[in-house]
Design a protein around this nucleic acid. Structure first.
Lengths: 247, 247
DNA sequence: GAGTGGTCTAGACCACACG
DNA sequence: GTGTGGTCTAGACCACTCT
């Protein structure tokens, strides 16, 4: 006896390691606790550091661990549920929304965004940058693309800059009647700028939420929201329960 | 000058590689086209294979590439939008739903699921397994947990097995009045079983959708749906547009 | 400066698909 | 059998954080 190798196809080491570590996290570690460093863990399990890291990477992807260079690997708290419910039909920047305006610039939108802006294509576009906080931590960044044609009140000479200007754009947007919202979620990897704001490395996995704001039969604005995939669970409806993936 | 190194902090090789490859995919390759193999690509760019693979991994995560052992690396088609809209309030298995019932077993639900089943905790639970197809390919698997108490019509002796039994459970479920749905989306990694059905390796990134079906003031059923993160974009509302992450 | 995770190398062998 | 991606090793050095 003394063998656990009953599978027809042997499991890769890193996957077995992942299982072992996962169970250890459940039983032997508390949230926030710091794990032994990678070199010691690798030695303890008798594998190369690269193999250990493969297991740690997946556990981090699943939100079980948090790794920070120069600091160490800690046990992550359960994911926070962030509401992205489109039920309450309101514009971004409406009273009570969870976002904080950080800046605004006038740019040409990315080609893919320009396509969905439809009728508004060609004119200048405001890019409003916002951040969403939860429990004192940035969980998402957003760039809201608003064609100048959607906010005619902004057409005058603008002396305001940065956040104030962004808030002005949102104010103007809120004057329109919102026809509806369309939303999509997909997996992406954080661009350098977003990664910095989210305190992650570039390329970190993120959940990208694309929202089209409809008004007067057209697309009045498009938002690209980038949520930390390791720490966030996006909720729709009034789902207030906890993650079912915890164990 | 002949130098492109203007950054204060040099970019890691794999990240630069990713950018270069990404641009090459846009301009020099067609969807479905097969790339040179990893050993040749690594040689061509003058890096170790492991470094090249780090770039390929992220591109696959973003849905730009598809890698298959024994076959090669191909350029992935744009992600398919799959509707997970909770607006049409209906039970799983209602006419017109996109899922195909594959089997059914009676099990104890995972601890985390049992917790959200609330009032029904303790009794036997049906686990109905379903698959969602799109364009002839499995894009998602689902396990629907239905407490026996939710489907009293099933309490008799059951001679049916597998898919037929699963359909019977769904039929019974559809007799109840649906009070509402609550939904959450988060990143996970495919368990071995799901990975097999989705034609992916275990650990592949997936979007996990948790749905609670409410009836008579309680949770009548809970579904855990696992979507391929590389090929799927989950849409809410009537969002029929294409991905904005394409470029 | 010491210790951490992040990047990188140059190999090796394995599992799988296909002809 | 041949070629592909998947796993694994044993090192090395770098970037970052904390003291």
């Amino acid at each position: 006896m003394g063998t656990t190798r009953l599978e027809t196809v042997p499991e890769p080491k890193y996957r077995h390691l992942k299982t072992v570590l996962s169970e250890a996290l459940d039983s032997e570690f508390a949230v926030g606790e710091i794990l032994p460093n990678e070199r010691e863990l690798a030695a303890r399990f008798g594998v190369a550091r690269a193999t250990l890291r493969q297991a740690l990477e997946q556990l981090e992807l699943e939100g079980r661990l948090q790794r920070r260079r120069g600091v160490g690997t800690t046990v992550a708290p359960p994911r926070v549920g962030v509401d992205v419910n489109p039920v309450r039909h309101s514009w971004p920047g409406a009273p009570g929304d969870a976002w904080q305006t950080e800046g605004c610039e006038e740019t040409a939108p990315p080609a893919a965004v320009a396509g969905t802006l439809g009728a508004y294509t060609g004119g200048p576009v405001y890019a409003v940058h916002r951040v969403r906080m939860a429990h004192g931590q940035a969980v998402a960044t957003e760039t809201l693309y608003v064609p100048a044609a959607s906010v005619p009140g902004m057409s005058g000479i603008e002396t305001e800059a940065g956040a104030a200007r962004g808030r002005a754009v949102l104010r103007e947007l809120n004057r329109l009647e919102l026809g509806g919202q369309e939303r999509a979620v997909e997996l992406g990897s954080a661009r350098a700028e977003d990664a910095r704001r989210l305190d992650r490395l570039p390329g970190a996995p993120v959940l990208v939420v694309t929202t089209r704001y409809l008004a007067a039969g057209g697309t009045a604005a498009v938002a690209l929201s980038t949520y930390r995939a390791d720490t966030c669970r996006l909720t729709f409806g009034d789902f207030a329960g906890v993650s079912l993936l915890a164990s």
